[in-house]
Amino acid sequence: MARMSPLMVVPPVLFAGLAALFFFGMQRDNPDALPTALAGKPAPVVQVTQLGDKPVFTAEMLQDPGVKLVNFWASWCAPCRVEHPILEALAAEGVVIHGVNYKDTDAKGLGFLAELGDPYSSIGADGSGRMGLEWGLYGVPETFVIDGNGRIVTRFAGPVTERALESTIRPAMEKAAQSGG
């Protein structure tokens, strides 16, 4: 009978170890969560230009009482289309959402809103991406929950889905409301 080499055991053991790592990694509450160094800090500068007829998003609006969202989006962003109905539903509930059209043309951004609806209380264009850089943007879409003191409670990178809304956004909005928002 042939003897089994100890090296023959290594691949299955490595595979089992990697499978366990992947399994436990997928069990996290929010695998898409990207931490932000800005949590608990005042929101960074707002640098946008006029986009359409809507009120221009300003830093002063972040100091208004109540919880609000800041949503970075673009017409060229497919996940932005996915999250848009949820943003529309939040706006219909009375949630204040400030929109930042990121690295897009005004015409395409306005066309996107004309096609899908406009959930934003105020809006602005960040054509150069400078504001996104200041806010530590990873990509679009990204949504920040801001309290009534203008402080960032959380950041959500990726499209706001029903799951993300219930597991991340709404709990952050409740926390923001309790912190003086």
Rank of each mutant, 00 (worst) to 15 (best):
A91I: 03
N30C: 04
L21I: 14
V96L: 04
L7Y: 15
A107C: 14
Q47Y: 04
G139W: 08
Y102P: 07
M131T: 01
F72H: 12
P11K: 09
T49Y: 08
M4Q: 15
A157P: 01
A92L: 07
G109A: 15
M26P: 00
L87D: 07
G25H: 00
R170N: 07
V153S: 05
P79R: 00
G117H: 03
E60G: 04
T36V: 08
M173K: 09
F15Q: 02
G40H: 06
R151I: 00
P35K: 11
R3Y: 14
L133N: 06
L69A: 05
M8I: 13
I146W: 02
V10C: 10
K54N: 12
G127R: 10
G139V: 04
V140T: 13
Q50R: 15
L18H: 05
V82K: 00
A16L: 11
M8A: 15
E88S: 12
W135N: 01
K54E: 13
G139L: 06
P44K: 11
V46G: 01
R28D: 02
V100G: 12
E174Q: 08
K54G: 07
E162Y: 10
V45F: 13
L34N: 09
K41E: 13
A92P: 00
M8R: 15
T168E: 15
P55W: 08
P85Q: 03
G66R: 05
G181A: 00
V45P: 02
G111M: 04
L14W: 13
G111D: 04
L165W: 13
M4N: 14
A33K: 08
A92E: 06
P171T: 07
I86T: 12
L69N: 07
V13A: 14
Y138I: 14
P35I: 05
R3Q: 15
E88D: 08
Y138E: 08
G124F: 03
L14V: 14
F57E: 01
A37W: 03
E93P: 00
W135H: 03
G127A: 09
L38Q: 13
V160H: 11
V145F: 09
G124I: 10
V95C: 08
P31F: 02
H84I: 03
T168S: 15
V153N: 04
E93S: 08
T105M: 15
F57C: 03
E162S: 10
S75A: 10
Q27Y: 01
K175C: 03
G40F: 02
T105R: 14
I152Q: 06
P11M: 09
E88A: 07
F144S: 01
P44M: 06
L133V: 14
V45H: 13
I169N: 02
D64I: 00
Q50C: 10
K103P: 09
T143K: 04
L87H: 01
